[in-house]
């Protein structure tokens, strides 16, 4: 049973689609524009900013990768993001397990203290952090970028994994304990397989946040230690005024998150919404 195109309801639906289409266009078009620009020459961009590039040229990407040092920034990004995501996920899974499955003296107080980490911006910790990193001799090393992000990700991850463990059926755990499983067995063999969806969402969210992190890296890193967003924002010299090269560099920053987002958009959106509702 199809609604007639001319019925009031059909008109309404058509209007809805049209309006949504306009908003979708506004949301997506700037990204499409930057990708197209990345393949154009400067002259081509000036003459026809809205057209498709005449040829799919990769020179701008080469210029950004080699000339503007984006190879180094890319390496930095990977060397920071991978440890942050892996370490935070492990630490948060363990602490989420503790908060979700045990009760112990001070648990609600500790949880409140960790809740603070969900609210504070990096601005609130950056000055002492800079000092601490100097004292530890870690300033201008990857650790100065990794450890603070692990600490803040741990706060979010703890709440995330705690919610996950609390929602798992306790009967399974009880049964496993009766069967004589050790705590570690319960966590690793019983609960971990059930927690995979939650862990996947956590990994995806932490990946995005760490990849896009700007303020901490801006303060803590210089030279080739900079990650992609900071390298891009601080790009100076002849490439900084070359819009197609800037566009190619921007695409390099976007692409990894974009690929992950398209594959895991459900985890992204539900994760950010659920994370917001819970915290």
């Amino acid at each position: 049973m199809r609604r007639s195109r001319f019925s009031p309801a059909g008109q309404r639906t058509a209007l809805t689609y049209a309006l949504l289409g306009v908003f979708l266009f506004i949301a997506v078009m700037p990204f499409v524009g930057i990708v197209l620009t990345a393949f154009k020459t400067t002259a081509e961009l000036a003459n026809s900013p809205f057209a498709l590039p005449k040829a799919w040229r990769w020179e701008n990407f080469v210029a950004a990768w080699e000339g503007a040092r984006f190879a180094a920034y890319f390496q930095s990004s990977v060397l920071v993001v991978v440890p942050v995501v892996v370490i935070s996920t492990i630490l948060a899974t363990l602490s989420g397990f503790a908060f979700g499955m045990y009760r112990f003296p001070g648990d609600s107080l500790l949880l409140l203290i960790i809740l603070l980490g969900l609210m504070v911006p990096f601005e609130a910790v950056i000055i002492p952090l800079w000092q601490i990193m100097g004292d530890l001799g870690l300033r201008n090393t990857y650790w100065a970028l990794i450890l603070p992000q692990v600490a803040l990700s741990f706060a979010f991850g703890t709440f995330w994994m705690r919610a996950n463990f609390k929602n798992l059926p306790t009967e399974l755990v009880d049964a496993a304990v009766v069967d004589g499983c050790t705590t570690w067995d319960v966590l690793w063999r019983v609960l971990f397989p059930l927690s995979r969806p939650a862990i996947l969402s956590l990994v995806v969210l932490l990946f995005m946040w760490t990849w896009n992190e700007f303020f901490l890296v801006l303060v803590m890193a210089s030279g080739d230690l900079r990650t992609l967003p900071v390298g891009l924002a601080l790009l100076r010299g002849r490439y900084a005024t070359d819009v197609p090269v800037m566009a190619a560099a921007s695409v390099m920053v976007l692409l990894p998150v974009l690929v992950v987002y398209i594959f895991f958009q459900r985890q992204f959106i539900q994760g950010m919404i659920a994370g917001a509702l819970k915290s």
């Binding site: 630490l91 948060a92 363990l94 602490s95 397990f97 503790a98 908060f99 499955m101 045990y102 009760r103 112990f104 003296p105 648990d107 500790l110 203290i113 960790i114 603070l116 980490g117 504070v120 609130a124 910790v125 950056i126 000055i127 002492p128 952090l129 000092q131 601490i132 450890l147 603070p148 692990v150 600490a151 803040l152 741990f154 706060a155 703890t158 705590t183």
Partner: peptide, 26 residues
């Protein structure tokens, strides 16, 4: 409960050093 503290400790240590102490520092 002592087991819970063991699970919590590694993450909490990082959190205390790189978030909590700096908040008070600021």
């Amino acid at each position: 409960p002592y087991q819970a503290y063991l699970f919590l400790l590694p993450g909490l240590a990082v959190y205390v050093v790189f978030v909590l102490i700096p908040i008070f520092g600021t």
